Deep mutational scan, measured.
Amino acid sequence: MEVRTIKVFTTVDNINLHTQVVDMSMTYGQQFGPTYLDGADVTKIKPHNSHEGKTFYVLPNDDTLRVEAFEYYHTTDPSFLGRYMSALNHTKKWKYPQVNGLTSIKWADNNCYLATALLTLQQIELKFNPPALQDAYYRARAGEAANFCALILAYCNKTVGELGDVRETMSYLFQHANLDSCKRVLNVVCKTCGQQQTTLKGVEAVMYMGTLSYEQFKKGVQIPCTCGKQATKYLVQQESPFVMMSAPPAQYELKHGTFTCASEYTGNYQCGHYKHITSKETLYCIDGALLTKSSEYKGPITDVFYKENSYTTTIK
């Protein structure tokens, strides 16, 4: 009895394709271990004539594949690729409408935090270190965002349907971005203890939790000093293409032309909904596939993004 075979390709990165001759009487799992086709788990399936010449994702289970996976995804987590594939199996079914010149995501599976993050990423200057993220990001900007969303979920250790947080998501993504040249110098002034300067680099240099107003941050924000008295913390120097200011959701007025974009969060910790506000020729609110415009805006804002380049204080 002759062994019926077909020729397929296996890959971990969709760049390096490895030619395989597979036995049609055995499952993919018996031949390769966990195997995925377009995100779908085909591990328990036997090869079919229609699979001839198709590319299958496999887990990096030998040295060659491990090197290829690390170079593309910059992670050695053995569960990463499987999590990416199972997320992709959902995100490829989502709709990605162009809204006001940006790629958004039609609401499904509690994905409003991903839509808000995706919209924000198209408006701030950011370059990702893992080629996987950078490639998928370019495709997302062009309207094909399924891979990018699935990668975000995998890097953030999230599953489809789980509630997510924009600030946490951005923080994970910033860790995989090139923020080497970003720098922030802060000064804390206390009447009792004097003053202390701190220099922050990388992710810490672009994120701040405690106030939404970048102007206020430049002037000074009140913080408790270690001595128990009130101290003032203010920005001395900022070198970065953008800054992200966050605070627990509270009524906040966004003035046209003073910011790049913002995240609105309605609801409580267990259950809520994100919308995205962007400042173009007027203010726009993007909620999944829905767009509304207004000249002014007041609502429960939790993150505001500002364009920056270089700032030095005039406070002496």
Rank of each mutant, 00 (worst) to 15 (best):
E2W: 13
V3C: 14
R4V: 13
I6L: 14
I6S: 08
V8L: 11
V8E: 04
V8P: 07
T10H: 11
T10I: 15
T10D: 10
D13S: 06
N14G: 15
N14M: 05
I15W: 06
I15N: 14
L17E: 10
H18S: 04
H18Y: 14
Q20D: 05
Q20L: 09
V21Y: 14
V22F: 02
S25F: 13
M26R: 15
M26P: 02
M26C: 14
T27K: 10
T27N: 14
Y28H: 02
G29H: 09
G29W: 06
Q30S: 13
Q30W: 13
F32H: 13
P34V: 12
P34E: 14
Y36A: 03
Y36K: 03
L37S: 12
T43Y: 07
K44T: 13
I45Q: 15
K46L: 14
H48D: 14
H48N: 14
S50N: 11
S50T: 14
T55Q: 11
T55K: 09
F56N: 00
F56S: 05
F56L: 12
Y57W: 14
Y57F: 13
Y57L: 08
V58A: 07
P60L: 09
P60M: 01
N61V: 09
N61T: 11
T64A: 12
L65V: 10
F70A: 06
E71W: 02
E71M: 10
Y72F: 08
Y73D: 04
T76Q: 14
D77S: 07
S79R: 12
G82D: 15
G82H: 15
R83I: 06
S86Y: 06
N89M: 11
H90P: 05
T91N: 04
K92G: 08
K92C: 06
K92A: 10
K93F: 07
K93A: 07
K93H: 07
W94M: 09
K95Y: 15
Y96H: 07
Y96P: 09
P97V: 15
Q98S: 12
G101Y: 03
L102Q: 06
T103N: 01
T103K: 05
I105Y: 03
K106F: 12
D109Q: 10
C112N: 03
C112G: 00
L114Q: 04
A115S: 10
L118T: 07
L118D: 06
T120V: 12
Q122S: 01
I124T: 03
E125C: 00
E125N: 08
N129Q: 15
N129G: 06
P131V: 04
P131F: 03
P131Q: 03
L133A: 00
D135W: 07
D135N: 10
A136E: 14
A136G: 08
Y137D: 01
Y138Q: 15
Y138I: 14
R139H: 10
A140E: 06
R141F: 08
A142S: 12
G143E: 03
G143M: 03
E144M: 04
E144H: 09
A146F: 03
N147K: 11
C149K: 01
I152A: 05
L153W: 01
A154S: 09
Y155W: 02
Y155G: 01
N157K: 13
T159I: 11
T159P: 05
V160M: 03
V160G: 02
G161W: 00
E162Y: 00
D165K: 06
V166T: 00
R167V: 01
T169A: 06
T169C: 11
T169W: 03
L173P: 01
L173V: 09
F174I: 03
F174Q: 02
N178W: 05
N178S: 10
R184L: 07
R184Q: 03
V185G: 05
V185T: 04
V185W: 00
L186T: 12
V188N: 01
K191P: 15
K191I: 07
K191M: 12
G194H: 04
Q195M: 14
Q195E: 13
Q197C: 03
T199H: 09
T199R: 09
L200G: 01
K201H: 15
G202R: 04
G202F: 00
V203P: 10
A205I: 01
V206Y: 04
M207E: 10
Y208E: 07
Y208A: 08
Y208K: 07
M209K: 15
T211I: 13
T211Q: 06
L212C: 10
S213A: 01
S213I: 02
Y214K: 05
Q216S: 10
Q216W: 03
F217V: 12
K218E: 02
K219S: 10
K219G: 03
K219C: 07
V221G: 01
Q222S: 10
I223V: 15
I223E: 11
I223K: 00
P224A: 12
P224K: 14
C225I: 02
T226N: 10
G228N: 01
G228Q: 05
Q230H: 06
A231M: 02
T232M: 14
T232R: 05
T232A: 04
K233R: 13
K233T: 12
V236I: 09
Q238V: 01
Q238R: 01
P241W: 02
F242Q: 00
V243Y: 02
M244L: 00
M245E: 02
S246W: 00
P249K: 02
A250P: 01
A250K: 06
Q251P: 10
Y252V: 06
Y252K: 03
Y252L: 05
E253Q: 06
H256L: 14
H256W: 09
G257L: 05
G257V: 08
T258C: 08
F259Q: 01
A262T: 00
S263P: 05
S263G: 00
E264F: 00
Y265D: 06
T266H: 09
N268H: 04
Q270P: 13
H273E: 04
H273L: 06
K275T: 11
K275H: 04
H276R: 00
I277D: 03
I277N: 00
I277V: 07
K280R: 14
E281T: 06
T282I: 08
T282S: 12
L283R: 04
L283Q: 00
Y284F: 08
C285G: 05
D287P: 00
T292R: 08
K293R: 09
S294C: 13
S295M: 11
S295F: 01
E296V: 14
Y297R: 04
G299Q: 01
P300S: 09
P300W: 15
I301V: 10
I301M: 03
T302W: 00
T302S: 14
Y306F: 09
Y306D: 04
N309R: 08
S310T: 11
T312F: 13
